[in-house]
Computed example of a mutant assay.
Amino acid sequence: MWLSKGMDLRAENEIPQNEHSHLMSLRIEIIFAVAQGLRETELSVTAELVPTSSWNISSELDKDSYLTLDEPMNNITTSLGQTAELHCKVSGNPLPTIRWFKNDAPVVQEPRRISFRATNYGSRLRIRNLDTTDTGYFQCVATNGKKVVSTTGVLFVKFGPPPTASPGSS
C-alpha cells in the first residue's frame, strides 16, 4: 500500500474466541505518517490487551457446591376426587430452592387443595380433590444459585372409580 503525506492507517484486530478459551482481545493500532517534504516515514505501533470475558475463578467454597437430580418425577394416573402427590427428588449444596410449574405456568397454591412444601429429599406437590382440569405436565425446577436441574411428570385425572389392584399383584 502506498501512503500519501500525512495519511494515518489504523487497524484493529481481535483474537478469535471459542467456548474453550478465555482470551483477551489484542487491539493493535498502527499509525503511518509521512513527513511533509521529507523522506522520513514515522511508524508508530501501540498494542493493548482488552478483556473480552470475565475469568471463572473458583473459590474454596465452590469446590463443595453441587446440584443433583436424585430421581426423575413419576407419571400419575388417578381419578376424580382423589389426591395426587408429585415428588421432586433433588439434593445440593447450597440447599436448592424449588419452583413448581404446570404446563409451563407457576403452580399457585390453593388453601386446603393445592400445596407444596420442602422435604428432606427436595419438595412435594400435593393436589387434593382432583378434577380433570388438574391434568397436565408438572415440572419442578431446582437451583442452588450455580446450577439448575429439572424433571417433569404427567398427572392424568380420569373419570370413573380409582384404580384397584388386580388379584395377584402386590
Results as ranks from 00 to 15, higher is better:
74 N>Y: 08
74 N>C: 04
75 N>R: 09
76 I>W: 11
76 I>G: 07
77 T>I: 15
77 T>E: 15
80 L>C: 10
81 G>V: 11
83 T>M: 03
85 E>S: 13
85 E>F: 03
86 L>F: 11
93 N>P: 03
94 P>M: 08
95 L>G: 05
99 R>Q: 10
100 W>L: 06
100 W>I: 12
101 F>S: 03
103 N>R: 09
105 A>Y: 06
106 P>Q: 14
107 V>A: 05
107 V>P: 01
110 E>F: 02
111 P>H: 03
112 R>S: 09
114 I>R: 05
114 I>E: 06
117 R>N: 09
117 R>E: 12
118 A>R: 04
119 T>A: 08
124 R>W: 00
125 L>Q: 04
126 R>A: 10
126 R>I: 14
127 I>L: 06
128 R>C: 12
128 R>Y: 14
129 N>C: 01
131 D>V: 08
131 D>Q: 15
132 T>K: 12
133 T>E: 14
133 T>N: 09
134 D>Q: 01
134 D>H: 01
135 T>L: 09
136 G>C: 04
138 F>S: 01
140 C>R: 03
141 V>W: 00
142 A>W: 02
142 A>K: 01
146 K>I: 12
148 V>F: 05
150 S>D: 12
151 T>L: 04
154 V>Q: 10
156 F>W: 03
156 F>H: 05
158 K>C: 05
159 F>S: 13
160 G>E: 06
160 G>Q: 07
